[in-house]
């Protein structure tokens, strides 16, 4: 008998990290909790119903597709569908009817993820696909906002800080929301995007777990600040400050939790940097010159489409391969 411990023939990878898909996914879920709690505090039951509707629908849709594709239901427990549901709910306005949220969650999983072949195959961030669908399908409901409970105003509708900036000329009128309110979340907006503080607490946990690439949020924030800062320096009476742009709208949640999705962001450091800078510039362009007040969703989706190309162009040279002239 040949001793079988002399040669082990095996293809790579030879070293396996102890990280696994479910581990990372659950780290992301934990990191989202501060923002979820903050939104429950600001919007109470409306927020709770939206979270429940999105997560449950995402899980059911995922299960249905796995059955249809004759795959094992095990991957249901990897947490990816829960994240899609959670992230989708966090990007919805609190007053959105629950049935619309359900449609969005179905579309996020079905069209955003499963038609491409499930986790790891999708081109776009599934939660943002769901949101983009809702934005186009129900444009009025998706742009109707209610004030957080902490604001003691009794109005049915309420404008977001970015909406004020775009449509009410808030800088010139001096009605721009104070940065303090933006930071703590005392403003109108989507469920999860209002409190920058809660999001950043969660993001710290992700950095501690090394679950996201620091280049993406840093790149997005830097390029957006430089871009909007230029206009602010030229005319501070017309343009809002770069800090306002970073704290307002969905930038923080987008930069830390959506653009960093491992499946839909580039793998090389250079590619990642280009990707992040691109998102920041696109967000700035849409916010300052576009028809919509907010552009984080479309910016991330657009840069998602560039990811395969970025991966290909920034592929590191293989050891021994000649430099191209």
């Amino acid at each position: 008998m040949m001793p079988n411990n002399l040669f082990i023939l095996q293809s790579s990878p030879h070293f396996k990290d102890k990280d696994s898909v479910p581990k990372i996914m659950y780290a992301v879920i934990i990191s989202l909790m501060p923002a979820v709690l903050a939104s429950l505090y600001f919007f109470r039951f409306k927020a709770l119903f939206l979270y429940l509707a999105c997560v449950i629908t995402a899980l059911i849709t995922e299960a249905l597709f796995l059955l249809l594709r004759k795959k094992s239901l095990d991957s249901l427990s990897d947490g990816s569908a829960i994240i899609t549901g959670l992230l989708l709910a966090m990007t919805l306005p609190p007053s959105l009817p629950v049935e619309h949220a359900v449609i969005g969650a179905v579309m996020a999983i079905a069209i955003g993820k499963q038609v491409f072949g499930g986790l790891g195959q999708n081109i776009f961030n599934p939660a943002l696909v769901g949101r983009a669908f809702l934005q186009t399908a129900f444009p009025v409901a998706m742009t109707t906002w209610i004030p957080p409970i902490t604001q003691k105003i009794n109005t049915a509708t309420f404008a977001t800080p970015l909406g004020n900036l775009k449509f009410q000329d808030a800088v010139a009128q001096g009605t721009l929301s104070p940065l303090k309110d933006l930071f703590f979340g005392n403003i109108g907006g989507c469920l999860g995007e209002t409190s920058a503080l809660a999001l950043l607490v969660g993001a710290c946990y992700l950095f501690y777990k090394r679950a996201i690439d620091w280049r993406i949020p840093v790149g997005i924030i830097c390029s957006l600040m430089v871009f909007t800062g230029m206009f602010w320096l030229i005319n501070p009476n017309k343009y809002a400050s770069p800090l306002f742009h970073v704290l307002a709208g969905g930038l923080i949640i987008g930069a830390f939790f959506m653009a960093t999705d491992m499946v839909t962001s580039p793998v090389t450091p250079l590619g990642t940097t280009i990707y992040a800078l691109g998102i920041g510039v696109l967000v700035g362009t849409i916010r300052l010159f576009g028809g919509f007040p907010e552009g984080v969703m479309y910016s991330i989706l657009l840069m998602n489409t560039a990811v395969p190309l970025l991966n290909q162009f920034t592929r590191p040279r293989i050891l021994g391969e000649r430099r191209k002239k």
Binding site: P97, H100, I103, I111, V115, T136, A137, F138, P139, A141
Partner: peptide, 22 residues
């Protein structure tokens, strides 16, 4: 019923046609 505006816009055409072809 709240109409899904997306369906009468171009994206709705692409999504529906894609699903039908599949």
């Amino acid at each position: 019923f709240e109409p899904w505006v997306i369906m009468i816009l171009p994206p709705g055409a692409f999504i529906t046609l894609g699903i039908l072809i599949a």
